[in-house]
């Protein structure tokens, strides 16, 4: 193992391996920083900005900020959490997040983050986007009005599935998820319900057909534990910590 190095997160020392970002090191060390578009199995993306922290008087996305020895980072401050609340509110106002009828409710990272941050409302005028669903595929459904443009499906489809099925297209508020087929229809791609790109969607955009509402209320992913606890369980641990966990 390389030499142990540390930075300061909210005044406490966090060890890191050179090459790790602040977010990666924090999660490995059991310190939660809220995030949405970051996924431990993929390269950082930097679009949701929810992981923003303050260092050196400036704000940085901690998912792309390289950890450096002696770096002083503030994350769990009222200022940063207020910023995060606003960001999550913007995402809620921007899409059609009708949780009461969404199959992903209780298993949705955006919703769980809203709960964690104590959001009671979107706070902005709702956009009510109008993008038709794509129900062409026999076993999958796409509802584009819930997309938060995290590009996890784009990354998973290209890097893991090797199929390159999804892209983002358009500019500004017109930016949206598209399917890479001449027809634009999911049925005309080689996607399978078992693909990583399907499993990785943190919200209710990419859905498997005929399996919705199967989990009782109270047993859904974020009913059991808040997203802050689950994110720490999902985070890769340094070899030493993993070894300790496995022997237990």
């Amino acid at each position: 193992m390389s030499e142990r190095q540390e930075f300061l997160l909210d005044g406490e020392e966090v060890p890191f391996i050179p090459g790790q970002t602040v977010l990666q090191a924090a999660l490995s060390a059991g310190r939660y920083i809220p995030h949405l578009c970051y996924h431990p199995e993929f390269k950082p993306h930097g679009s949701c900005k929810v992981c923003t922290v303050k260092s050196g008087g400036r704000t940085h996305a901690s998912c792309t900020l390289p950890a450096r020895a002696g770096l002083e980072v503030d994350s769990a401050t009222e200022e940063m959490n207020q910023l995060r609340r606003t960001l999550v509110q913007m995402l809620f106002a921007e899409g059609n997040h009708f949780c009461p009828s969404c199959e992903k409710s209780g298993n949705c990272a955006l919703q769980a983050l809203g709960y964690d941050l104590g959001l009671t409302h979107a706070g902005f005028r709702h956009f009510f986007p109008d993008r038709p669903v794509d129900a062409s595929h026999p076993s999958l459904l796409l509802d584009f009005n819930r997309c938060i443009l995290c590009e996890l499906c784009v990354r998973a489809s290209a890097e893991v599935d090797g199929k390159n099925i999804f892209s983002l297209s358009g500019r500004g508020i017109g930016k949206h998820l598209i399917v890479n087929a001449a027809s634009g229809r999911l049925a005309d791609t080689g996607i399978a319900a078992t693909d990583k790109s399907v499993a990785v969607c943190p919200v209710g955009v990419i859905l498997k057909k005929r399996v919705g509402f199967a989990v009782p209320i109270g047993k859904r992913r974020y009913d059991e534990r808040p997203i802050s606890a689950q994110a720490l369980e999902d985070a890769p641990r340094p070899p030493a910590a993993t070894a300790i966990q496995e022997t237990q």
């Binding site: 809620f92 059609n96 997040h97 009708f98 009461p100 009828s101 979107a122 709702h126």
Partner: peptide, 9 residues
């Protein structure tokens, strides 16, 4: 009341 809800569909 907060979002328009399902009727806003």
């Amino acid at each position: 009341a907060a979002t328009g809800g399902l009727p806003a569909q």
